[in-house]
Design a protein around this nucleic acid. Structure first.
Lengths: 136, 136
DNA sequence: GCAATCTTGTAATGAGATAACGTCACACAC
DNA sequence: GTGTGTGACGTTATCTCATTACAAGATTGC
């Protein structure tokens, strides 16, 4: 199986529907919000959404935001398999900005190394106000 | 009200009980686990725990781990009000290591600044295996 | 005393996630 | 083409996490 699929061609029907909902959305969506949006497409139970989300996250097409219990479509321009992604989440408009930074990733890796910690997954989520929302 | 209380003297009864449960624990606890542990002390409803936790987090005595939906007592040696804390969470034994690093905090602050993002709260959680658990 | 405020207790409910079951469709060996 | 394995799908029930809403005490200041 491909390590980092960015091709929506080989997605299943449910995965395509969930991916579509996330892509259409301007911000992150909860699994239950997705479920509601897809009721007309035959979705009836949370598990249908969660199963699709699991796969999409595995493919790297979708990210999970731990601090929101929600999911976003990957908008990272050159999503080159980097798994150290920082998210800037605006608490007012809900927009999410995806950032990768080599210095940041390197420092985290070094800190883990110093503690002899075998790093598997990194979660970095910044909460605050985006540029446009600070005016209001 | 004090910005960063590290004195358990002025806690209410419920806050003291919840703090005690977290301090006794080797790892993070969920709100409902705390509830179960405090049933003998008169706790009957989740809200009693959540209210205490809210305050303890506000005081800086307790941290919330977003990726676990759980809480840990602050073990940071010189907890000097730094709000950029990274957690290393062992997925095997559940132990949590608290880390502050000025380089890391500075880089995040800079990234936020470059995006004109008004940073309010930072969540950094590293999942993996601690030194001792890698042997097994 | 008495009002203002904070903490508490309780019940009910909302929101997020998974377990356990069975079915279906497809690929591939034989 | 029959059998078998595998992966996706559907449904129900259940579990965990968190909050809303309302009432009752407790504490402080005047």
């Amino acid at each position: 199986m491909n390590e980092h699929v960015h091709d929506t061609a080989d997605l299943t029907k449910n995965q395509t529907l969930v991916m579509g909902a996330l892509t259409r959305s301007k911000g992150p969506l909860s699994a239950y919000t997705i479920l509601d949006q897809l009721r007309d497409n035959g979705f009836r139970a949370p598990l249908q959404v969660y199963r699709a989300l699991d796969k999409l996250v595995e493919f790297g097409l979708v990210h999970r935001l731990e601090s929101l219990n929600a999911f976003v479509a990957c908008r990272h321009p050159g999503c080159d398999g980097d798994d150290t992604i920082a998210f800037m989440i605006c608490e007012r408009c809900g927009q999410v900005n995806e950032i990768t930074d080599t210095a940041l990733a390197a420092r985290l890796k070094q800190l883990a190394g110093e503690a002899s910690f075998a790093l598997k997954k990194t979660t970095i989520e910044l909460r605050g106000l985006c540029r446009t929302c600070q005016a209001a």
